[in-house]
């Protein structure tokens, strides 16, 4: 997989959610991603960035345009230095929430994306990497 373009955004306030979503949308439009996949990508982005703000008081998002074979896509890496997640299996279950919300952000985003991976440990922050292929 090769990276064609990269962009970094710092996240520390609610208003950054809209800024990030718009930036991701720009890149998705540029590679010609269709409306349905774009909407899935942006909604997943919204989930992950809100988690970052809510549970880790912010962090950093890396936006990359990647290419593998003939397929182009967008890769996003959300990294924060928050408290981390103690039980990842639980956090990935539908309906599990420590924030009295719907508990669909992580498992739902996994379903919306083409690829999803999460790394987290208590005290070490959380990193979520996702890819949405243009036709994925």
């Amino acid at each position: 997989m090769i990276t064609l373009n990269r962009d970094r955004l710092l996240i520390h306030k609610d208003q950054d959610v809209v800024i990030l979503r718009n930036r991701v949308k720009e890149y998705a439009t540029k590679i010609g991603m269709g409306l349905v996949n774009q909407t899935k990508l942006i909604t997943g982005t919204s989930e992950l960035v809100r988690n970052m703000l809510r549970y880790a008081q912010g962090g950093e998002v890396l936006i990359e345009v990647v290419s593998r074979g003939r397929e182009n896509g967008i890769r996003l890496t959300f990294s924060d230095r928050g408290p981390g997640i103690a039980d990842l299996d639980k956090a990935m279950q539908d309906g599990f929430s420590t924030g009295r919300s719907l508990g669909l952000g992580l498992p739902g985003t996994k379903r919306l994306m083409s690829e999803f991976s999460i790394k987290s440990a208590p005290g070490e922050g959380t990193t979520v990497t996702v890819i949405k292929w243009k036709n994925g």
């Binding site: 909407t39 899935k40 498992p107 739902g108 985003t109 379903r111």
Partner: peptide, 13 residues
């Protein structure tokens, strides 16, 4: 909109 309906379903809402 249709794309929103699809996304909501995948998200599990």
């Amino acid at each position: 909109r249709p794309e929103i309906a699809q996304t909501i379903v995948h998200l599990g809402i």
